[in-house]
């Protein structure tokens, strides 16, 4: 799997028509995606897009209703237990034992994966180095901060050197500094050859992935590198600022020149045809009697791509 040829030959994860229904609701609808070996793959979408359901099926803790997923070459629907030694999964909700210390949690997971005793000191040393949990080894996991808990979860996931790391919204509810640190760790892990599938609802985080699958209501909207996805937006993206943003957006949405309009930070991001000039684009806003404080052309972000696709 580490050979350069192997990368192209077999994807780390091959998902084909993966479907999961809950009663009458379809959480994941015929998803087909290949995750390449050694890439940092993002599953991106709003709440309810099917991110968690997808990751749970890949981790072998939720049975698919239909379709298959080959994880490390093993069909997770048919042999979920066969997949488990190759992966590590980090659930969205903190899943470690709050009444166990940092060290006890790490030891427990090392035991479950049969990490040889001789290798443990070096392994823990490394995990402590990146997580900076070394000075908290005797602290109960329940007494750690949100960011620390996530780093401990990640450490437990990495204690057995998995081939594939499945992370469900690892930065959810984590402060910005810890978020940055977590992403740095993920990049390091990928550099070491681990395949990572990470879900997030933060589109700015998706930019850090090698490739991104945009999910909406259980369906795959788009799949590409962040750069290619942004490039897929043809036309001009304008950021328009007004004192009445919501009203401006609503007016723009109804305009013939406008292909999509949505709120983005303190501006309305408006996608217009390539030939449309600024003043033409602004005409409906002015016609509605709204002020325009500022207008500038901007690079489309992933969020713009997503809003355009969902639009």
């Amino acid at each position: 799997m580490d050979s350069p040829h192997g990368l192209a030959e077999r994807p780390a994860i091959a998902i084909r028509g993966l479907t999961r229904r809950f009663d009458d609701r379809v959480a994941v609808d015929a998803l087909s995606v290949d995750v390449r070996s050694g890439e940092l793959f993002g599953i991106v979408g709003p709440d309810g897009a099917g991110k968690t359901t997808t990751l749970r099926m890949l981790a072998g803790v939720l049975r698919p209703t239909d379709g298959t997923a080959l994880v490390a070459g093993i069909d997770v629907a048919r042999d979920p237990e066969g997949v488990k030694p190759h992966i590590a999964y980090m659930s969205q909700r903190f899943g470690l034992y709050e009444d166990l210390t940092v060290r006890e949690n790490l030891d427990f997971y090392a035991d479950l994966y049969r990490v040889p005793r001789a290798e443990r000191p070096a392994r823990l040393e490394r995990l402590y180095a990146f997580s900076r949990l070394g000075e908290f080894t005797d602290r109960l996991a329940g007494k750690l901060s949100g960011g620390m808990k996530q780093k401990l979860s990640l450490s437990c996931a990495l204690v057995h050197k998995p081939d594939i790391l499945l992370l469900d919204e690892p930065t959810f509810g984590v402060d910005p500094i810890s978020r940055r640190e977590l992403w740095l760790i993920l990049h390091e892990m990928v550099a070491e050859g681990i395949t990572i599938v990470v879900s997030t609802s933060y589109l700015d985080e998706a930019e850090r992935c090698d490739r991104v699958a945009l999910l909406h209501e259980g369906r795959l909207l788009a799949l590409d590198t962040p750069t290619a996805l942004r490039g897929s937006v043809s036309g001009r993206m304008l950021a328009i600022r007004s004192s009445r943003l919501r009203r401006a957006r609503d007016v723009l949405r109804g305009a013939a020149t406008v292909r999509s309009a949505h709120l983005f930070g303190d501006a309305v991001h408006v996608l217009v045809e390539a030939g449309v000039r600024d003043e033409e684009a602004l005409a409906p806003v002015r016609a509605a009697g709204l002020d325009v404080r500022d207008v500038e052309e901007t690079e489309p972000s992933l969020e713009d791509v997503f809003m355009r696709l969902v639009g």
């Binding site: 803790v61 488990k84 030694p85 992966i87 590590a88 659930s91 899943g95 709050e98 479950l112 499945l166």
Partner: peptide
């Protein structure tokens, strides 16, 4: 209830 089972279930423990 505490959410640790989802994590435990993803390990090779039988």
């Amino acid at each position: 209830e505490r959410g640790s089972m989802e994590q435990l279930a993803a390990t090779p423990v039988s």
